[in-house]
Design a protein around this nucleic acid. Structure first.
Length: 1016
RNA sequence: GCGGGAGUGGCGGAAUUGGCAGACGCGCUGGACUUAGGAUCCAGUGCCGCAAGGCGUGGGGGUUCGAGUCCCCCCUCCCGCACCA
């Protein structure tokens, strides 16, 4: 009588695995191939696990279980990203110490994860909040603090790759003689300026509601990513990490990683490398003698490292448009604004700067629709032609990018164009769309482009397609002044040809310099490198690379984070001197002080400034008074390197044993959500590269293969809109306002949203409509799970009702791992039924105890049974290799559909089947394995292999087509040749009738796949 | 606006990469067993048509003996970025 009872089986096997330490990795075994499979560890929130977590975790668990059976040694750990704001916010509300909340949440998460039967090696568990862990987070920070980036260092790493640029110990930083001559303090300050971890006073994103500053990455549309609170910009001393030094390597070393292209692209875009030039403009007055002096001085010397008082330095990606500059713009915060502002303009400039300083990023973005700005009254001299250029300030130029100043070329830049339009500034075109040739012209050139004169683009393509074979045209994206478009090109052969009317031929398409003095006629790209070189030769400019990426704002003002292992030296008056000291490695970890009250200070002053004096102050052996750094590290710090600690989580002497690092890294498979595409993954790679440069790890990249699981949405909902009860509005007439309310487009009135059941609606055309009012369209959509929407699925409930195996199986069966998919409770029901069927097929559900179904017998399997098994083994193995879990499950279902029809189910067929099922649904598989004679866990049973001879059918169905249309199917021997298949087809009734009165002009045969008669 | 991804039955999704469209599951219809069925089993299920047959992978065009898959144009949805000079 025992039916499939997940509630009985699952705890039983979970206890077994724990008792037998089934999934302990054990010491590294050189005889086996290693595999390191990692999940992005969760933040243990108070809400517990949601169904999104087990999606990726199940996928990795299957991979691990499968590979253990394939004989690999698998490292599969789990831990907790446990620092973070929610626990601290809870502390503010309730007074409960964040450590207590965190421990409780971890316990819940762990219980939930264990209930799902994941094969983690729990001996390797760690939390970023463990002093033993953050001891080493602090240690790595000290490494960053001890490192400077030598951009010109050429070296070959342990991976055999030659690189330019390396993080090196600060002790190796060359100190200029004038600094050395000064004082020891000057040397220390010089070093501090070059460290990868450095202090900087700059406008930062201050979020009053959260009581902390945020990294740029944590601010979305001027609001905090977490909580959506407004963010202001205020100047503050902050710790930054010099991630920009690694910008190039972070971008280029993505190339060889097995990551989704979309994620690589997002990272590249985030880094935003651009190549251009820095150019100096003279702003020391408009007296021509001064200008000449300045220019001559430049020609004799070199391009200064920092621009002097009388110089304005700009960054541009298009130095070839220098002749088109008609004005310049400084960011309002730019230090040269004061110098350039004339007395007449002073008031206007001050007012504008004042306004800009009040504006948060949100305001700036919102007002971005119209350009604003003020003329300073000052002028700069264009270094290429000596022209006097008016200098403006405007907030569309950002102080934090490039040099905070631009040359404006309104003829070729959309933003400059808008600004110039608004303020009546002239525009001077300097890039011509190339020479235009009319039909009948002849020309010479290396490359010609074609564009239709016709307005109808489809006609262009038609014409060009017609020309293709004749001229061997190819299609190419072309970069012009400020946009990219498509053009067709041909080789020289086209040049002397007369083209059909309506098509123009371009030479040097869209890229020729005009109005640029001696540079006229030069192709833009060539011009760009030429003028950059010319400017460099005369000391006026240099090639420059810029990044959209900013240095990483690394300090937070909250309590629940890692303290910095740093001290500020104080002078006799107790004021910081600006000089720093670090804690000795032996002093780590620096733990958080006990505090009675977790309320933020309400000011940008860090929480820890309220710490007890004994924690805050100490006196160094040399008598210097010291005060602790009171900022804490951001949550990202702990997640930057946890994958390293998992390898060797109990090591008290080092953050990781070098040999173990060699053996286990890199991570072979890393699975997590795409929301970490830039933040965590970029920060982690950055730290890893610093550790690599300093010789602590042997690979340049931590995560060889990355897979993003898609988000799981709530169940599909049908939503209708009503003006009043029963008065429906078609969803086509509905729009959203800013707060997400439904609005009737025609009148702007608010509408009520009504959730409808699936039988109240029906499909009509592309959309759903009300079943009884087909003219009313209904929205059909699945939404992100959220508490407010009430569509959150609790995995505990699913386990309670159907069991962990069903939850696991369903999450994998929903669709491809990477896809966004809506939840469906009925779908869970479906896989549960499948497992029940598996259970009934192998056990005797009419017996009182668990025993084998009488149909399961120790007999020799029949050939069709063997064939089915081997085909299933082949398919499932292939699907596991490609992470195609949804299809692997359907293969197992197909297998079961057959087996239920068998009166005799040979044990030698059922045992391998159970093994195939086991990575997906391990609990039921263990139970059935035991029943089928297994004496220990099946976790290390060899993975079943297939016999190639048994996966091919001896008789196959071949579809027969006439003119590509399916007309018949014939059954033939797999080895049959074309002639016999054709003969068989020709004797098929339906084919005979179809061929009557027609001539077969061709027969296409694809071996084993299909036969096609082409007839007339 | 820019960049990326995706549009296949009532629904989730399959389709050795150009070769039988809709595997598998859900749902639905009918039947069996049942006091009962929201358990289980059997049969059916893309659309139109009594049938023969025709039509079908967002829309339009093209290449091919043959297109969900390749090429061109367009539409819709999702995700990311958004004054980065």
């Amino acid at each position: 009588m025992p039916r499939y009872d997940a509630k009985r089986l699952e705890p039983k096997w979970q206890a077994y695995w724990e008792e037998h330490q089934t999934f302990a990795t054990g010491p590294f075994d050189p005889a086996k191939e290693k595999m390191y499979v990692l999940d992005m560890f969760p933040y243990p929130s108070g809400a517990g696990l949601h169904v999104g977590h087990p999606e990726g975790y199940t996928a990795t668990d299957i991979v691990c279980r499968y590979n253990r059976m394939k004989g690999k040694q698998v490292l599969h750990p789990m831990g907790w990203d446990a620092f973070g704001l929610p626990a601290e916010e809870y502390a503010i509300k309730t007074g409960t110490h964040p450590a207590i909340t965190t421990a409780k949440n971890i316990e819940t998460f762990k219980r939930q994860l264990k209930s799902l039967g994941f094969s983690y090696d729990w001996n390797r568990e760690l939390a970023t909040t463990d002093p033993d862990y953050f001891r080493w987070t602090q240690w790595i920070f000290l490494q960053l603090f001890d490192t400077w980036y030598d951009a010109s260092c050429e070296w070959t790493g342990p991976d055999g790759v030659k690189r330019i640029g390396r993080g090196r110990p600060i002790s190796e930083l060359p100190i200029p003689a004038d600094v050395t001559a000064n004082s020891e303090a000057a040397v220390r300050r010089y070093q501090d300026q070059h460290r990868l971890a450095y202090q900087h006073e700059a406008p930062v994103n201050w979020c009053p509601a959260l009581g902390t500053v945020l990294a740029n990455e944590e601010v979305v549309d001027g609001k905090s990513e977490r909580g959506g609170h407004p963010v202001e910009r205020i100047p503050l001393r902050q710790w930054l990490l010099r991630i920009t030094a690694y910008g190039d390597r972070l971008a280029t070393e993505l190339d060889n990683l097995n990551w989704p292209e979309s994620i690589k692209l997002m990272q590249r875009n985030w880094i935003g490398r651009s190549e251009g030039a820095e150019v100096d403009f003279f702003i020391g007055g408009t007296d021509s003698l001064d200008v000449v002096d300045w220019t001559m001085e430049r020609e004799s010397g070199t391009f200064p490292k920092e621009p002097s008082e009388n110089t304005l330095r700009i960054y541009t990606t298009r130095p070839d448009t220098l002749f088109g500059v008609t004005y310049m713009v400084l960011a309002p915060e730019h230090p040269a604004v004061d110098r350039l502002t004339t007395p007449e303009q002073r008031a206007a400039v001050d007012e504008y700067r004042q306004q800009a300083s009040f504006k948060s990023d949100l305001d700036r973005t919102e007002l971005a629709k119209t350009k604003s700005g003020v003329f300073t009254g000052g002028y700069a001299i264009n270094p290429v032609n000596g022209e006097k250029i008016p200098v403006w300030i405007a907030d569309y130029v950002l102080i934090s990018y490039g040099t905070g100043a631009i040359m404006a070329v309104p003829a070729h830049d959309e933003r400059d164009f808008e600004f110039a339009e608004k303020f009546g500034i002239p525009k001077r075109p300097v890039v011509a769309p190339g020479e235009v040739f009319e039909p009948g012209d002849s020309f010479r050139g290396i490359k010609g482009g074609l564009q239709s004169a016709s307005d109808d683009p489809s006609k262009t393509d038609e014409r060009i397609a017609a020309l293709k074979p004749e001229y061997d045209l190819w299609r190419e994206e072309v970069l012009t002044a400020n946009r990219v478009f498509t053009a067709y090109f041909s080789r020289e052969s086209i040049c002397e040809q007369i083209l059909p009317s309506g098509i123009k031929v371009f030479l040097h398409f869209g890229t020729t310099a005009v109005n640029s003095g001696k540079y006229d006629g030069i192709e833009s790209l060539e011009f760009k490198s030429k003028i950059t070189a010319d400017l460099a030769a005369s000391g006026l400019g240099r090639k420059a690379v810029n990044y959209r990426l900013r240095d990483w704002l690394f300090s937070r003002q909250r309590y629940w984070g890692e303290p910095f292992p740093l001290w500020h030296e104080l002078d006799a008056n107790g004021q910081p001197t600006g000089l720093l000291r670090v804690d000795a490695e032996s002093a780590l970890p620096i733990t958080l002080p006990e505090m009675a009250d977790f309320k933020p200070t309400g000011t940008p002053e860090p929480m820890l400034s309220k710490a007890p004096e004994s924690w805050l102050f100490q006196t160094a052996p040399d008598g210097t008074k010291l005060k602790r750094e009171t900022n804490t590290m951001p949550q990202w710090a702990g997640s930057c390197w946890y994958y390293l600690r998992f390898v060797d989580n109990k090591n008290a002497a080092a953050f990781i044993d070098p040999q173990l690092e060699q053996q286990w890294l890199p991570i072979d498979l890393y699975v997590g959500g795409a929301e970490h595409a830039v933040l965590h993954l970029l920060y982690s790679r950055f730290w890893h590269k610093v550790l690599f440069d300093r010789g602590h790890v042997h690979t340049a990249e931590p995560f060889q293969r990355l897979v993003n699981q898609g988000m799981i949405l709530g169940e599909v909902e049908f939503t209708g809109y009503e003006k009043s009860a029963g008065e429906w509005v078609s969803s086509a007439e509905v729009t959203d306002d800013e707060d997400g309310n439904a609005i009737f487009k025609a009148t702007g009135e608010k509408l009520a949203t009504v959730k409808l059941s699936s039988d109240a609606v029906k499909k009509s055309g592309d959309s759903f409509v009300l079943a009884d009012q087909p003219d009313i369209r209904i929205d059909s959509r699945a939404y992100k799970m959220s508490k407010s929407r009430g569509n959150v699925i609790n995995p505990d409930k699913v386990v309670e009702e159907y069991g962990a195996d069903s939850l696991r199986l369903y999450e994998m069966f929903m669709g491809p791992l990477e896809a966004v998919k809506p939840w469906s409770m009925q779908g869970v029901e479906g896989v549960f039924r499948f497992l029940s069927r598996v259970w009934r097929t192998i056990t005797d559900d009419r017996a009182d105890d668990v025993r084998l179904n009488p149909a399961v017998q120790d007999t020799t399997p029949a050939e069709p049974q063997l064939r089915l098994l081997h085909k299933t083994i082949k398919a499932v193995t292939h699907d596991f290799e490609t992470l195609g879990f949804n299809t692997s499950i359907s293969r197992l279902m197909e297998f079961m559909n057959e087996v239920t029809n068998w009166n005799v189910r040979p044990i030698s067929i059922m045992r391998p089947f159970v093994l195939l099922l086991s990575p997906l649904a391990p609990h039921i598989a263990e139970e059935l394995w035991q029943l089928l004679g297994g004496t220990t866990t099946l976790a290390y049973e060899p993975w079943p292999t297939f016999d190639p001879k048994l996966v091919e059918d001896s008789v196959i169905d071949v579809p027969v087509q006439i003119n590509g249309k399916l007309r018949a199917k014939i059954t033939v021997a797999a080895k049959a040749d074309q002639a016999s298949i054709e003969a068989a087809a020709r004797s098929e009734d339906s084919i005979v009738s179809q061929l009557e009165g027609k001539t077969v002009i061709k027969v296409v045969y694809v071996p084993g796949r299909m036969l096609n008669f082409v007839v007339k």
